[in-house]
């Protein structure tokens, strides 16, 4: 059961903060670098749901895109079932790794019929039209849509919840082993959100897909995930079993995040001070130190690594 499906080792992705133009080349001007994901280790086992939680700009979407081969890492390596993914062989992993985006209105081609959208991932498999149709029909029935009604409709004919179901059908049609879900329910209304969450959990239980569930919603993360990874400013700061991290968060940032989330249980929000740091020029040492209530001398100079502490991993000098 504990077989690793996908593993990232010291993976980083840097972007240039602006385009490199002629002037910059001539005068050899340095362009600032955005460290969106900075030396992150993460592994996901077969049939496991890992929630990746963090605020906007912490690099969680970039990490999801790296794991689905949509981005090429600046450094580090990604291993899929024991085989490293490289620039040359990444095409062969495409059917095994799928992605569902946040906004289905933008991620589905408005001019394609639903059947063509859903079977597009099967393009390279040399299947006959009849085989594709039968796969389309079963994928659509798994997500609870009637394939006869919807086959030749277009995305604009559907409601938000239905569109997201189509996006899910497209992701599972090639029978992947690993699916990245990037905020799949954030654009949906509360009543529709729970329908889609129920669907995702049902598919996970039936087919044993491993999910990386990217979200900023703590309640959603608690519902779907077995394990949770908390990201802050391009780094994973804490990872462990969901129930344990949610009830006894170790990293001061996780604690701050959990107490800042409005729930119907807790009326008094305790927001952390300060702003989200810039990724161009991140704080020295531990990146949370300017906002941390427990800051020590060592935090300002030396960066803590993820260390095992009581069944989970945490990157903080309080737990060395």
């Amino acid at each position: 059961m504990d077989e690793t499906v996908i593993e990232a080792k010291q993976i980083s992705r840097y972007f240039l903060a602006s385009k490199k133009g002629l002037l910059e080349s001539v005068f050899r001007r340095e362009i600032p670098i955005v460290r969106a994901v900075d030396q992150v280790d993460i592994n996901i086992n077969r049939g496991e749901v890992v929630a990746l939680v963090g605020e906007s700009g912490c690099g969680k979407t970039t990490l999801g895109r790296l794991l689905t081969t949509l981005e090429t890492p600046t450094s580090g390596e990604i291993i899929f079932k024991g085989e490293p993914i490289t620039e040359h062989n990444k095409a062969k992993f495409r059917g095994k790794i799928q992605l569902v985006f946040q906004n289905p209105l933008e991620s589905l081609d408005p001019r394609m019929a639903l059947r063509d959208i859903v079977v597009e991932p099967l393009e390279r498999m040399n299947l006959s039209s009849a085989e594709k149709t039968s796969m389309f029909e079963s994928a659509l029935s798994y997500v609870g849509l009637d394939s006869h009604v919807f086959a030749y409709r277009r995305p604009s004919d559907l409601s938000g919840g239905q569109r997201q179901r189509v996006a899910v059908a497209r992701a599972i049609v090639s029978n992947p082993e690993f699916v990245v879900l990037d905020e799949p329910t954030s654009a949906l209304d509360a009543s529709v959100q729970s329908q889609v969450l129920n669907l995702l959990v049902k598919l996970h239980k039936n087919f044993g897909f491993a999910y990386l569930f990217i979200t900023h919603n703590i309640a959603v993360a608690r519902y779907v995930s077995d394990r949770v990874a908390i990201m802050y400013a391009g780094k994973v700061v804490e990872t462990g079993p969901t129930a344990q991290v949610m009830t006894h968060p170790k990293h001061p940032y996780t604690q701050a995040l959990l107490s800042a989330v409005p729930t119907t249980e807790n009326k008094d929000l305790v927001p952390p001070v300060g702003e989200v740091p810039s990724l161009i020029n991140p704080p020295s040492g531990c990146r949370f130190h300017p906002r941390c209530p427990y800051v020590m001398e060592i935090c300002k100079t030396t960066e803590p690594k993820l260390r095992v502490s009581e069944g989970e991993e945490v990157a903080c000098w309080l737990y060395k």
Binding site: A190, H204, A219, R222, Y223, T264
Partner: peptide, 16 residues
């Protein structure tokens, strides 16, 4: 009721 308060092992979420 549609706010997720449990985990997936405790059953489906209530939907409208």
């Amino acid at each position: 009721a549609s706010i997720p308060k449990k985990t997936k092992d405790q059953g489906d979420l209530t939907t409208i």
